[in-house]
């Protein structure tokens, strides 16, 4: 029975993935055959094999990307600037720093908003407005401006990630902290619990599901912030720099490999948040 359920879930996803993969391999020939370096003539199968083995294709075949990923992670020493582990570590560390700062700021803001009527009335509209403007466009300014006064390295990128990630956390936490029903709040009052005790014993535990849902969004957007923050540094280090240098030199396989690395990192980060959510739920006595 469980096997059947798993099959019902996996079969459609596998089918869609297989169709996408087939389309990708099929599209490689028409997209790459226009290149001047593409060999003329040959049978159809020879032309396909050629399209899948170019050095600088317009559209690299999936196996080329996987091979490039393998070379750049496993076979290259970690200290080398060609190693994606090297670039990935740099991106992940500024992502995590910015994510942590953003989460703390978001939670603090939410606690302030829930407890202060002035903050709720005056700050919340600005928080919402701040997200309707394309924040990422400021990323290069933050990096360059802080670089001009001598702040370089992780901090500028982390600040961008923080700016992007605090908002979902703040909004989710306001929702979560105000989620306890009036009856429960009244119960706390009958216990003559203070504001701090109500916060710690009722509001925060009630907000945890909202917090983790927001944290998943925040960690993903934090990675985007770190990558975009690496663009204006002119290709020194990080996944974003790898994308930029790839586009300067027409190294398509390098761009795709960096993209896949970013996707894998994003998936791992989101899974880490999901895992800590399960662990927290278990620690708080939830039953699966």
């Amino acid at each position: 029975m469980t096997n059947d359920g798993r099959l019902v879930r996996i079969l459609p996803v596998a089918t869609v993935l297989a169709v996408l993969l087939a389309l990708w391999y099929g599209a490689a020939l028409p997209m790459n055959s226009g290149l001047p370096s593409f060999p003329q003539g040959g049978t159809l199968s020879e032309r396909f094999l050629a399209a899948w083995a170019l050095e600088r294709p317009v559209l690299p075949a999936p196996h080329q990307i996987v091979a490039a990923l393998w070379t750049a992670t496993i076979e290259t020493p970690v200290s080398s600037p060609r190693s994606l582990v090297f670039h990935g570590t740099i991106t992940v560390s500024s992502t995590l720093l910015g994510f942590a700062l953003g989460a703390v700021l978001g939670i603090a803001l939410a606690i302030g908003i829930v407890h202060s009527r002035v903050l709720a009335a005056s700050l919340v509209p600005w928080l919402v407005a701040s997200q309707t403007i394309p924040i990422l466009a400021i990323a290069p300014i933050v990096v360059v401006a802080l670089g001009a006064v001598g702040v370089t390295g992780l901090v500028p990128k982390a600040l961008i990630s923080m700016y992007l990630s605090f908002f979902p956390v703040a909004i989710g936490m306001v929702k979560g902290l105000t989620s306890p029903e009036p009856m429960l709040l009244d119960l706390m009052r009958t216990y003559s619990a203070g504001r701090l005790q109500t916060l710690l014993r009722l509001r925060l535990p009630a907000a945890l599901p909202y917090l983790f849902a927001s944290l998943k969004v925040a960690v993903a957007i934090s990675l985007v912030g770190a990558i975009v923050g690496e663009l204006p540094t002119g290709g020194s280090a990080g996944i974003g720099a790898r994308l930029l240098s790839g586009s300067y030199y027409g190294q398509t396989i390098q761009i795709w490999a960096a993209l896949f690395a970013a996707a894998i990192i994003a998936a791992i980060l989101v899974q880490c948040v999901a895992l800590s959510e399960r662990l927290t739920a278990r620690a708080m006595g939830a039953r699966p």
């Binding site: 990675l223 990558i227 790839g246 993209l259 994003a266 998936a267």
Partner: peptide, 10 residues
């Protein structure tokens, strides 16, 4: 959840 913006150079 992926950084889709990365496809910009492509």
């Amino acid at each position: 959840a992926l950084p889709i913006i990365g496809i910009a150079p492509i």
